[in-house]
Design a protein around this nucleic acid. Structure first.
Lengths: 190, 190
DNA sequence: TATTCCGATAGTGAC
DNA sequence: GTCACTATCGGAATGAG
């Protein structure tokens, strides 16, 4: 597991599965059930780490975390049940690109926020927010799945759409970018 | 006569004819024979001024001027004939645009060099180096002249071509620009 | 669908 | 094709082992 050198979210890691066949397309490589199983096991761990890191980074601003923290700090007795706090794992994505450029097989593990100075154009954004991004849990792809044919990157030119509120931005990346800054502030408060 | 606020050559003046009908397209305005005649008279004067200014600015670098200057300074007697020196008027263009943007009727008077920090893109260049530029001496246009229909600026997208050596630059304005710098040095030596 | 640099292209708003 | 500003789009070079 390494940090992505050009992160596209506030947390963005890569899992590099230990296998001799790292140059295969991920859809193909993960047809190997053993590799898929071991990578999923690793992904569960990494996802947990990322969730904890998100809690550490943003928990103080989260309303849901605040309820939990208040229960702990003030010893509020609600039948002995301490609220769960925010489900940070739900904010973490794990998956591969339909047309990865790097030669080495890799799985992305990243938060949903898309806040990073390296998120510089629409293709960056769409590569994690369209069908170009395929969750590890969706592999292996069925033979007839259309995403086998997405490796030419056509979908990366789709209109931009905010992952949180669904608002459309056509091709106006700069506008999306500043909108994401606003959404980020709200997202942290969830 | 005023200086063009955004000159596209090392000398670039505008003649603003005194007429009540300054909002007409120049092709139409100069169908008025009197206006055309008086503007041509003015243009002859301005062209002469520009030529003298070019001589002052660049004459010292001109080989042709050098021959004349040598004859004068050294009193070389060539049958009493002093060489003419360079024909700077031949380096001055006088004309209008087929699709002018300014509302006020104006005639451009400028040197051929196209050397100016205000010459910033291909349309600037082509507006003086394609059929989009119509010499004052070509007016009035005959009824069937195709340039009546050039006022939509289509020709401004033509491939760029060096006015001096004819070399083509497709749409690579930056390349043309640095080439013009080189041509400028040679042109001054003529 | 690696980044980065440069430059061409496109829309806007102002004057 | 007025300018100036911003941003989008497009090609070319890049470089580790």
């Amino acid at each position: 597991m390494i940090r992505d050198k050009f992160p596209k979210s506030s947390i963005h890691l890569l899992i590099l599965p230990r296998t001799g066949r790292t140059r295969l397309h991920p859809f193909v490589a993960f047809q190997d059930g053993d590799l898929l199983a071991s990578t999923r096991a690793e992904a569960i761990k990494v996802k947990g780490m990322v969730a904890e890191e998100l809690r550490r980074m943003f928990g103080r601003e989260s309303v849901t975390e605040g309820v939990r923290r208040a229960a702990i700090e003030h010893g509020i007795d609600d039948g002995g049940v301490v609220p769960e706090g925010r489900d940070w794992e739900a904010e973490v994505m794990v998956g591969v690109h339909a047309g990865p450029s790097m030669s080495h097989l890799h799985v992305h593990v990243l938060s949903r926020d898309r806040i990073s100075p390296c998120m510089k154009h629409g293709k960056h954004y769409n590569s994690f927010n369209t069908e170009f991004f395929v969750g590890l849990e969706e592999l292996p792809l069925k033979e007839e799945d259309v995403r086998w044919r997405k490796d030419r990157g056509g979908g990366l030119r789709e209109d931009l759409e905010c992952w949180r509120c669904g608002r459309g931005f056509e091709n106006r990346f700069a506008k999306l970018k500043s909108h994401l800054d606003e959404e980020f502030e709200e997202w942290k408060k969830d």
